Amino acid sequence: MITTQALTGMVLAGGEGRRMGGRDKGLEPFAGLPLFAHTAAKLEGQVAELLISANRNLDAYSMFGRVITDEEVGFHGPLMGIYSGLRAANTPWLLVVPCDTPLLPDDLVARMLAGIQGADIAVAFDGQRIHPTVALIRTALADDLHAALESGERKIQRWYERHAPSQVDISDCPNAFTNLNTQEDKIRLEAQLMAPKGAL
């Protein structure tokens, strides 16, 4: 059983935000909070420490947790962010979530911990496809991931497959992985959240 003290949480907020006009997506206002704060809240009180993977506006993020930057300068994608988190974590396990999925279930941590089932990686599954940026990863895999990155690997799923990941079924929450890539996505979801209950 993985305890809270054995688990670090991390919000991935280090992307370029290209489809958001190059803005820092994690800091985009959404329903009264910066967007990343909604996913951070899903981990609050359930992890030993909260990390935020960011590559700009570090002071703004530092109000919510310990900010880490990519081990290599520049925007190298989420796999580099995951590697940096594995290196920075002081616990045996790292739970990763993206900054742009505010509808993740409130019991996400419990689901991921229950779904690891002896594997080194557990990844969320919506019944049709996996969501690689929602994952529980053993931090001892940092050296293996470093070697993969050195070889040029940048696809998360390919690296996961080397370690026979467990799939955590979250298909009962159909909206859980709604992600906000554009301003239009953000406006649409905000309108849905403000609509009468049951509109989602």
Rank of each mutant, 00 (worst) to 15 (best):
L193M: 14
Q183P: 00
E184T: 12
Q192I: 03
M194P: 00
L141N: 04
N57T: 09
G152S: 13
A176W: 06
G21R: 07
R111W: 09
N179A: 02
P174W: 01
S53I: 00
L95G: 12
K25R: 15
N175W: 09
T8G: 10
A122M: 13
N181K: 11
M194L: 14
R158N: 05
A41E: 15
E161T: 02
M20R: 13
T182I: 12
V47S: 05
H163D: 02
T133Y: 10
E44F: 01
A119P: 00
F125W: 15
S62R: 11
D169T: 05
A6W: 00
Q5M: 05
L35P: 03
C99S: 14
L50Y: 08
M10W: 07
H146N: 11
F125G: 06
V96M: 08
N55G: 15
C99H: 15
T69I: 10
A119H: 15
D169W: 02
I137M: 07
G115P: 00
R87A: 04
V73W: 03
H163I: 00
A48N: 14
H163N: 01
P102H: 07
L79G: 05
I68Y: 06
G22L: 04
L7W: 01
A142C: 11
G15P: 06
V11T: 07
R188C: 03
M10N: 05
D59E: 15
G45Q: 08
F64I: 04
D107M: 08
R162L: 14
M80K: 11
L108S: 10
G32R: 08
P34C: 14
G45I: 07
L180G: 01
